[in-house]
């Protein structure tokens, strides 16, 4: 238990550092801005009470906000994604439900399940985030293209990380 909390904290800090020091600085094109820190919300265990997930999402978003100088933007998008998470998990739950004590990983529930799960959460998060950033609906499709391309890159990175995690362990986070 304690072990997994420490591991989880370590992964979270790593993801935040990666986001702030690396992904916020690669200025690839105006269309691709991956926000990989959302993986923190993806990996939270299912047995956590929902309000803990929401508060964790809020704090994560706020930390990213402080580094990118956009108060409230990442926080509201991340909280939105965290709010939708249990509904998405409910929709795509495997036949015999989620085992308690096992992490929500590709290794445990299969690549197809993980693909649907991560795509919906990441897409929702990016959708809210990018429209909040522009805060207007003209150029609707251009913003939408940014959402799509950025989600794609975020997902690619999350899958890369998942792949390496898969090699290491099956049940631990």
């Amino acid at each position: 238990m304690i072990n997994s909390v420490i591991r989880y904290g370590f992964v979270s800090i790593l993801l935040i550092m990666l986001q702030v020091l690396f992904f916020n600085n690669i200025q690839f094109s105006g269309y691709i801005n991956p926000y990989v820190y959302i993986m923190i919300i993806l990996l939270l265990p299912t047995e956590l009470p929902q309000w803990v997930v929401l508060v964790a999402a809020f704090i994560t978003g706020l930390i990213i906000d402080f580094f990118s100088g956009s108060p409230g933007m990442h926080a509201s998008a991340t909280v939105m994604a965290a709010f939708a998470r249990p509904y998405i998990l409910g929709l795509i739950s495997p036949r015999d439900g989620y085992e308690t004590g096992s992490s929500l990983s590709m290794a445990n529930y299969g690549i197809k399940w993980f693909l649907i799960y991560s795509t919906s959460v990441v897409f929702l998060h990016h959708l809210v985030l990018f429209y909040l950033e522009v805060f207007r609906f003209d150029d609707f499709f251009r913003t939408f293209l940014r959402v799509l391309l950025s989600s794609l890159f975020t997902l690619a990175f999350i899958f890369l990380l998942e792949y390496f995690r898969k090699g290491k362990s099956r049940t631990r986070i």
Binding site: P71, G72, A75, M80
Partner: peptide, 8 residues
């Protein structure tokens, strides 16, 4: 939480 975020 969303209220706080939006007011920020």
């Amino acid at each position: 939480l969303e209220g706080i975020a939006f007011s920020l």
